[in-house]
Structure formats: C-alpha cells, structure tokens
Amino acid sequence: MSTLTLSAGEALAPARRNKPLLDRLEPRSRVLAAIAVAVAVIACRTLPAAAATLLPAMALALLAGLRPGPTLRRLAALEGFMILTLLSLPFTMGGPVLFSLGGLHWGAEGTWRAALILTKSSAIALSLLALLGTLELPELGHALARLGLPARFVALFVLSTRYVEVLRGELARLRLAMRARGFRPRASLHCWRSLGHLLGMLVVGSLERAERVHAAMRLRGFDGRLHLLDEHRAGLLDWGFAAALAATFALLALLDMA
C-alpha cells in the first residue's frame, strides 16, 4: 500500500492509450473489486493457492495496461520494505531444519511462511496497482463517496489531492529562496533551526490557505455536504467483470481446500 500512496502524486496518470478494459469500468466497481481481491488473497491458506493468485493479479495488470518497468520497480520497493522480516522468518519459526549456517538453522516452517507472505503481498499489491493505481485520485474520491463513505472523509481526500500540488510548489519556492541565500544542508544547529522554520512556515501557510479556501467555499453555500456532478452507472461490463472475479475466487477456494 505504501508504494501506492507514496507515488500517488505524479505516477497515477499513466498514458491511457485506447482505454484499457479496467479504465472502462465504473470507478466504484474497481474499488469494490480491489477490496474483494485483497480479502480473497488474504484468505488463502495454502502456498499453491496463494501462488495461483498471482495469475489473476497479472491478468488484472494486463487489463489495466500497466507498463512492466515502473510496475516492477514499485513491487520491488514494497518487497524492499519486507526483506528483513522475510529473511528473519526462516531462522525464527522453527520446524525441520533445511540447512545450518554457523549456529543458525534455516527452518522449513519459516521458509514456507515467508513464501506465503511474499506471494500474497505481491498479488495484492499488483492487483491494487492495476485496479486503483490507474484511477485518477478525484475519481477515486467520488467512487468512495458513492459507496457511502462519510462526506467529511471524502472532502478531506478530494481537497488533499487538489492542494498537494500547491503545497509542493510552496515548498519548492521556500527552498529555492533558502538556496538563493546560500543555504546548504549540513549537520549544524543553524541548519536544523532553518529547516524547522521552513516547516513552520509551510504549516502556517497551509493553515491560512485552508481558512481562505473554507471561506471561499462558505461564500458559495458550502454546508458540509459535497454534491457530486458526475453520474455513474454500473453497466454490462461491470457485471461481467464481477462474474469473472467471482468465478476466479471459486476456483481459488477449491484449490485452497484441495
């Protein structure tokens, strides 16, 4: 998940040539599908079933028209987070010893568990990148609103997506102004204090901007409810996609029980 949010600002609008199949789905369907896929993958208890979930995940990536390079890089970033856990599991979980290294014993139980975690997280991450990563953030916000999430949360989300760029610009301007006066990051008290001032200015500036934005919204009659302009309907494609997903889940369940 963290790779998804970290890269949200810039990378969420990949080239959309000829609209891949997933892009033609209603945004709500994609959110629901993402939740369903995540739950289904987590529910798998056996390694073959967990490994098999990689197939539908890859199919989703293809249907979303994800480019292999950036996608693999993001997956690698996610796995990088977990590498320590994954490597320590075989040494700590016990079970039959596969081989010994000095005084350390590499156990079968931990190996199996690490493989399970690795396959499941990759399958979930890949599916989320395909289903949600290609969705424009405002669309995602609207989909969440339509799914009945509290208006306050949705407003917060949509406003954040709008003002992240403005904030980034403000930060860039302040940093440029600092560099123009010869500021170089160093491990000195002066440097830490200056960075503190920078952060403080950013927070104060954002707070004031938030007040102005809220004032502007109140002037146009905002009363806490966000009315949406666009209308979406689930079509044949959405139901077909749901049916295909359900069939895949059934197969996975069979495989998991076998």
């Binding site: 424009e136 405002p138 709008r162 934005v213």
Partner: peptide, 10 residues
C-alpha cells in the same frame, strides 16, 4: 489568489 477559490479537480 484564485488557488484559494478553485478547489475542485475539474
């Protein structure tokens, strides 16, 4: 500042 007034995506 128009950025204060325009808060919607589109």
């Amino acid at each position: 500042d128009s950025d204060d007034q325009l808060f919607c995506p589109t």
